[in-house]
Every structure is written in C-alpha cells, then in structure tokens.
Amino acid sequence: MRPLVETVDVEGCVLRLRTLAPAGRARDTLAPTIVLVHGIGMSHRSFKRVQRVLSRSYRTIAVDLPGFADSPSPDRRLEIEDLARLVITALRACDVEQCLAIGQSMGTQVVVGMALQDPGFVTSVGLIGPVIDDRRRTLLQQGFSLAVDGIRERPAMNATLLTDYLRSMPTYLRELRVMMRYPTLRSVAALEVPVLVMRGTEDPVARRGWAARVAGVAREAAFIELPGPHHVQDAHPGAVAAIVDEFIRVQTVGQLR
C-alpha cells in the first residue's frame, strides 16, 4: 500500500503528511484518525512499522515536522506551541476533524501542545517514550542515554536514526533547547483529554520513574510498559498497535481505567 503524501505550507513552514488507511478510507471521518508525530531529528520513518499495522483498521497520518526529513528548514526557531499549532492547521487543511495524536520522544511534547490548544480536535493523546525527565535535564545526561539506547535499537532503526539525524541536523540543533526546557509535567497535568503513556522497559531516555510520574499527573491516564528500547513502537509494532486499539475502544465506551 502506497501512502497518500501531501505537502502543506503553514505560516511559511512546510509539513508533509503521509496517510495510510484501509482501501477507500483516506478521507474517512467515521473512524478515529490516528496522527503520528516523530521525535527530534527524526521523521515519519520512525513510525513506519506501526503505521502499517494501525492502518489496517484506521486512517493514520504520519507527520514530518518543518525542517525534518526532506521538509525545508524554517527560517526561525519554533517553540513546541508553534509546532503544535502548525500540525493542527495542516491536519485541518487535509480534512481531519478529530484525532488521537500519538507522539514519540519530542513528538510527545508536540501532541500534548496540540491537545492543550484544541482539546475538541485532539480527543486523546498517546505518549511513547515521553521527554524530558525533569530530574535529568542536562545535555550530557540525555546524550549518554541516547548513546546507550543506540545499543538496544534494531539495526534498521539505527540506520533510520543516523540518516534522519544527518538530514535534519540544522533544525535539530536549533530545536534541541526548545525540547529540553519544555515543561512536560505541568503541561500533561493541564490536559483535559485522556492520556496513554507507553515506554519500553529498556528505554534509558524515558525511564520508568519518570514515565510513571507523567501518567500520574494526568487527570485520566493509562501507563503501559513493553519490552524494548526508546523506539518501542518500532521494536514491537503489533503490540503497540494492539494497545492503541484497546485505548481507542475504551475511549469509545467511556470506561478508561
């Protein structure tokens, strides 16, 4: 199945949206649309495996943020709130009416920002490997954790990491401090929508204590751990997709536990 790729210019920033859906449902508004937002330096490719699984049942849209992958680098630094606004505007331009927004790493900050700005549009959020641990908020600590994680990722994922980082380095360097200073805990605590927090048990970036605290400050949350590293959605796409599916089903009947 080939994705529908759309390029959207919002406020002079270019975003690319890659839609995969069951046949004939690329514009489907009957089922929840699942939006996937990558981490810093990365691209839609970090969600490639799990998007394939999710798209068997749902319309899925993987976003390339401005300056990442082959999207042109913006001429200014973008705060998390800016990125959230740009993604919402781009999705609305592509006929998305509501969505479950799932982010990984820095993408978790973006989807939280989206839900804070428009909880009617983002009906729930999924946070895979949320960042940044407020007790480990130094570049040295985060850099060491990423190096350790590289040992634990699949070789194919490491190849994606390397090539995406090389393509996105100017934007990566510009956005790094934006990610580092974002108040994740305070922002999650302010959410009005249900939250799914997920991490890999071998993730040295989003450690268990931190991820549990993120879930703990939310008004309504589920906390799930799966075997695997920081990119657990790549390591175990089937299991992650099954958890997301269950999360959606629980939301549908209003019985989140």
Rank of each mutant, 00 (worst) to 15 (best):
E6K: 14
T7P: 03
V8K: 10
D9T: 15
G12K: 13
L15Y: 02
R16F: 07
R16G: 08
R18D: 07
L20Y: 05
A21G: 08
P22K: 13
R25G: 07
R27C: 08
D28E: 10
T29W: 08
T29H: 11
T29I: 14
T29D: 13
L30R: 15
L30E: 15
P32Q: 10
P32E: 06
V35N: 03
V37N: 02
G39C: 06
I40R: 05
I40N: 10
G41N: 01
S43P: 05
Q51K: 09
V53Q: 01
L54K: 06
S55G: 06
R56I: 00
A62W: 06
A62F: 09
P66K: 03
P72W: 08
D75A: 14
R76C: 12
I80C: 07
A84S: 14
L91R: 09
L91N: 04
L91F: 09
C94K: 13
E97S: 15
E97P: 07
E97T: 15
C99M: 12
Q104H: 14
S105W: 03
G107R: 04
Q109T: 03
V111E: 01
V111I: 05
Q117L: 14
Q117F: 03
G120E: 13
S124K: 06
S124V: 01
L127F: 06
L127T: 02
I128M: 11
P130G: 07
V131Y: 01
D133S: 07
D134S: 13
D134V: 12
R135Q: 15
T138P: 08
L139D: 12
L139M: 12
Q142C: 05
S145Y: 07
L146I: 11
A147D: 07
D149N: 15
G150T: 04
G150N: 10
I151R: 15
E153A: 12
R154A: 07
R154W: 02
M157V: 12
T163E: 12
M169F: 10
P170E: 06
P170Q: 07
R177L: 15
M179H: 06
R181Q: 13
T184H: 03
L185H: 08
S187K: 15
L191I: 13
L191F: 11
R199F: 00
G200L: 03
G200E: 01
G200H: 01
R208M: 11
G209I: 07
G209A: 05
G216A: 14
A218N: 02
E220C: 14
A221D: 08
A221L: 10
A222Y: 05
I224L: 09
L226H: 10
L226W: 03
P227I: 09
G228T: 04
D234H: 02
A235Q: 13
A241G: 05
A242S: 14
F247S: 00
I248Y: 03
R249P: 00
R249N: 11
T252G: 14
G254R: 08
G254Y: 09
G254L: 10
G254D: 01
